[in-house]
Amino acid sequence: MPSTTTTGIETDVAARAIGATKFYGSGDTEVRALDGVTAEFERGHFSAIMGPSGSGKSTLMHCLAGLDTLTDGRVFIGDTDLSTLSERNLTLLRRDKIGFVFQAFNLVPTLTALENITLPMDLAGRDPDQEWLDRVIDAVGLADRTSHRPSELSGGQQQRVAVARALASNPEIIFADEPTGNLDSTTGAEILDFMRDAVDNLGQTIVMVTHDPVAASHADRAVFLVDGKIVDEMMEPTAEMVLDEMKLLSRR
């Protein structure tokens, strides 16, 4: 089990960044990808991280998910301070506590859909909770496709498998980086509906990076990032509201 450092405050926060700072390079070429980001992502909520290209969205997500380390500041998953964890414990944390959906190349080509879905649990040598698994597979509508290989699935189906994988281990939190970026709008909307569904009916927590206002409108809350800083935040966003905000931000 990963060692934990508690914040002392018991809240219903699934992930938290405190003064998160990330620099790339040094001197003249220094890039401040994250510049003192402090944010909380509540349990049972669907949050969107928005912002123009290069604003640090992916960097924030990677740092929150234990894929990357901060230059300064701290991030927590639940009560666990990620900066205290060793490489191995970070890996175990990702395996057991976090679900991932990437924009592309989400699946291992040699494994079937079902094997891809249960991969994190298989890696842990843990048996999946069959009832939960059936529910998840049912929810993403893949019951008849479980023995197919990724190459035999459409792009949308592949993303659904990826979402199912993220859900299957019933993690503390799911991170999705532009999960619909490669899909047409109808297929994308389907995926977003599944994610919404997972939060509402399965009690999951999702943090999604996107620059698509329509995608953001599926979330409970949107956080706006510009030049590595949080500049605004919006509850129950609609596509129009987000679009206006984006226009505003890009003019700044």
């Binding site: 894929l67 890996t91 175990l92 990437f102 190349f105 989400n106 080509p109 890696l123």
Partner: peptide, 16 residues
């Protein structure tokens, strides 16, 4: 490489 990256991201340990 990408496949390995994915495996590592979803929790495959170095030893595995």
């Amino acid at each position: 490489t990408r496949e390995l990256g994915l495996l590592r991201a979803v929790g495959m340990t170095r030893r595995q």
